[in-house]
């Protein structure tokens, strides 16, 4: 059975937020949305989500900058996403503090949710072990 997560989606593209939000809700997760980096940072600190879908390139504050400003404690799992080719890969994403990097476009949004759920479950197993 899938554990319910509180998920924060930070992306300046409305359709990406809507699609990810709807897909997550079909799996029973609670969703908070932010349309930019600064709003995302505020909500991250305020809501303490379990997992964050974080876009890289946003007009006000980019994803890596947002990560930098969040305290390391209880920051949740971070999935960095980008449609900008040639800029990021897993290694680079992990070097800025993300757990996983997912390039856009993604072929199947539900596979992305499964990645998020595995990440969360893994973290839960580590806490309990």
């Amino acid at each position: 059975m899938v554990k319910r997560m509180k998920i924060l989606i930070v992306d300046d593209e409305p359709l990406v937020r809507i699609a990810l939000s709807r897909a997550c809700k079909t799996r029973g997760h609670e969703i908070i949305e932010a349309s930019g980096g600064e709003e995302g940072l505020d909500l991250w600190i305020q809501e303490q989500p379990d997992l964050i879908f974080l876009d890289v390139l946003m007009p006000d504050m980019n994803g890596p900058k947002v990560i930098e400003k969040v305290s390391h404690q209880n920051r949740g799992k971070i999935i960095l996403m980008s449609a900008y080719t040639g800029g990021y890969d897993l290694k680079k994403a992990q070097s800025v503090g993300a757990d996983v990097f997912i390039p856009k476009p993604f072929d199947d949004v539900f596979e992305i949710i499964k990645v998020a759920e595995s990440l969360f479950e893994e973290a839960g197993n580590k806490r309990n072990s």
Partner: peptide, 10 residues
Amino acid sequence: NNPLTGIRSL
């Protein structure tokens, strides 16, 4: 790619 991702995922 950004809006296309949204279109396809939705």
